[in-house]
Nucleic acid binder design. Structure first.
Lengths: 90, 90
DNA sequence: TGAGGTTACGCCTATCGTAATAATG
DNA sequence: CATTATTACGATAGGCGTAACCTCA
């Protein structure tokens, strides 16, 4: 699992389909598709239900999404805190 | 920033030096050294104070360590929850 | 046939390991 | 000189983009 995969996953969950997620991420469609597949493979669970109109979260996906947002928020907080501290006292 | 970098960082913090961390991670010493340097570069802050005996956390490092453990715990929880749910209901 | 997701394939960057190079007590 | 971290360098793996392909209404 990688932070990129988590970011891609959140984008697809938010956008509802891979194409829009890819545009939002400024990346090509297959990059997002592949990373989602890899993530599902590693987790051994389908995070999305594929429909002809796009992808909607599965129950596992709903659970994962909560964690995903926490993890990304944690990463941002970590970087922010370190940078703030470093700016404050060198 | 990558999850590997965060894992390497925690290992060095725990072990007190790069060599032991590398052994614990089953990876060569330079791999760990490089990723720590990259992480510090990206954050714009030194996370460790280098001593001839190893590396000890800087103040920024102490702050980052708390976040790092949270992030890794979040990743584990995300995977565990998804796998448990998937096992429970397919 | 149009909208979407996936697979193939070639390229390019990132990471690794081994080996060599500091630096310090 | 022993211990530890870092840099050099060649090899490999992972990720990307373009293009082709599949599926479904």
């Amino acid at each position: 699992m990688s932070l990129s995969q988590i970011e891609y996953f959140v984008a697809v969950a938010d956008q509802g389909n891979v194409g829009r997620a890819a545009r939002a991420l400024r990346v090509a469609q297959p990059a997002v598709s592949r990373q989602i597949l890899r993530l599902e493979d590693e987790l051994g669970a389908e995070l999305f239900v594929r429909t002809p109109r796009g992808m909607t979260l599965s129950r596992a996906g709903v659970v994962f999404l909560r964690h995903a947002r926490d993890i990304l928020a944690g990463v941002r907080a970590a970087a922010d805190d370190v940078r703030r501290l470093d700016r404050a006292d060198g």
